[in-house]
């Protein structure tokens, strides 16, 4: 099975010498359909950089990033934006919903940005909201919703339009334990339905929802003990 996301020897250097910071050093990484991969590691280990590069928000200094067979490095700004509208969904810790838009409109946003007629986009959004269990809140504004509800909207936005790669950055960070578990359950369900998920977290119990855990330290993938460098960590079921 072809991986949905494939990072090959990705290096990302922030800034310029002599003040350069090596955020990622030659990382290779894959996520396959139906798989939820947890990325763990201490602060500053490069988790978030990994996600921004996987989503095409940032470009690697070296190495290649392929999403559903398309090399992001070969795409321009427009092409990467299109990938985010059609193939990649983001879920943020701070929800990042647009307060001026209703829940349904927030979910419909990627579809509308992709040129889908508003009516159709909204219908798809309602379906997505139904799938995350909050269809009745479709016309509410984010400020009138609880944190858990907002994060469900964010997940609905990340999956709407049959996108197959979900990148979640600490999606439960701003939620209480119970609500957080619900959100992870939802993510797991989306992956079981065929999507590939990458979950950045620093809580071990969240990693339990994942098929596989990747540890990052100082920009390299290390083994579970966190001691040795693991050069290749691919293939499903490597847990």
């Amino acid at each position: 099975m072809n991986p949905v996301l494939k990072l090959t020897d990705v290096t990302r250097i922030h800034g310029e010498a002599p003040h350069e910071v090596l955020a990622l050093r030659g990382i290779s990484f894959e996520a396959h359909p139906g798989e939820l991969v947890a990325v763990m590691g201490p602060s500053g280990s490069g988790k978030s950089t990994l996600l921004t590069i996987a989503g095409g928000l940032d470009r690697p200094t070296a190495g290649s990033v392929t999403v559903e067979g398309t090399d992001l490095a070969g795409l321009g700004q427009h092409g990467r934006a299109r990938m985010r509208r059609t193939s990649i969904g983001y879920v943020f810790q701070g929800f990042n919903l647009i307060p001026a838009l209703t829940a349904a409109e927030n979910v419909a946003l990627p579809r509308e940005l992709d040129g889908v007629a508003p009516r159709r986009a909204r219908a798809e959004a309602r379906k997505a909201l139904e799938e995350v269990g909050i269809a009745d809140l479709a016309d509410r504004f984010p400020d009138d919703m609880s944190g858990g509800q907002q994060q469900r909207v964010a997940i609905a936005r990340a999956v709407v339009g049959e996108r197959r790669l979900i990148l979640a950055d600490e999606p439960t960070g701003a939620l209480d334990t119970e609500t957080g578990e619900g959100i992870l359950q939802l993510l797991r369900a989306r992956c079981d339905a065929g999507a590939a998920g990458v979950l950045v977290t620093h809580e071990a119990r969240h990693a339990a929802w994942a098929d596989r855990v990747v540890f990052l330290r100082d920009g390299v993938v290390v083994d579970e003990t966190g001691a040795d460098r693991v050069d290749v960590l691919t293939g499903p079921g490597a847990r």
């Binding site: 427009h78 934006a81 509208r85």
Partner: peptide, 16 residues
Amino acid sequence: RPDLATMSAVGARPRT
């Protein structure tokens, strides 16, 4: 700014 950043993250074109 934050809203525009979010739009960018969900795939808005620069001309948005």
